[in-house]
């Protein structure tokens, strides 16, 4: 059994292929550990209620809302945050397609797009809508975000 007492505990997290050892509380969310304990501020606190997706990270290739996840639950997983992406096609597409305005939702949107492309190079329209509906852009730049995703999909060879 894994057990963690309410006192401070030491945990090792695999984030962006680097191992981070940190003292946390069992009740700390992954979002708060990333931002407040590790200085990885790319995941944004938005609603803190699992609605907006600004805090999205990728865990074992699946998008997850880090405000809805205890950091202890992420033990023994591979965590990817926006800081771990370097010049990927989806990042370039967001720039080329003007897919951000204020930029607050951008890390979350880039990561959910990246996660989708990891699992499916040519998703259906329904799948694109389903995945992108997980995130909210308060500047309402949805069309440009979808255009950015589609531009990457269109650049990939048919399988």
């Amino acid at each position: 059994m894994n057990s963690y007492s309410a006192n401070r505990l030491k945990i090792t997290l695999n984030i962006n292929s680097e191992m981070y050892e940190k003292e946390i509380l069992a009740s700390d969310t992954l979002l708060s550990v990333l931002r407040d304990k590790l200085g990885l501020t790319g995941a944004k606190p938005g609603c803190l209620n699992g609605d907006c997706g600004a805090c999205t990270v990728i865990i074992d290739k699946r998008p997850m809302k880090s405000c809805m996840l205890l950091a202890v639950e992420a033990f023994d997983t591979e965590i990817l945050t926006i800081e771990g992406l370097k010049d990927t096609p989806i990042q370039r597409a967001f720039v080329e397609q003007f897919a951000f305005q204020c930029g607050y939702c951008t890390p979350g949107f880039i990561l959910i797009c990246h996660a989708l492309l990891l699992t499916d190079h040519h998703p259906t329209n329904e799948k694109i809508t389903t995945w992108l509906s997980s995130n909210i852009c308060r500047c309402t730049g949805y069309q440009e975000i979808e255009n950015a995703l589609r531009s990457v999909i269109n650049s990939l060879p048919l399988e």
């Binding site: 059994m1 894994n2 057990s3 963690y4 069992a26 009740s27 969310t29 979002l31 202890v72």
Partner: peptide, 21 residues
């Protein structure tokens, strides 16, 4: 972020979970 702390347990069996409770 939660305003209070708690213990976290991840039992590996049904008996362990029930006993823990």
């Amino acid at each position: 972020m939660l305003s209070y702390n708690f213990d976290y347990y991840q039992p590996k069996s049904i008996d362990e979970a029930v006993g823990l409770y």
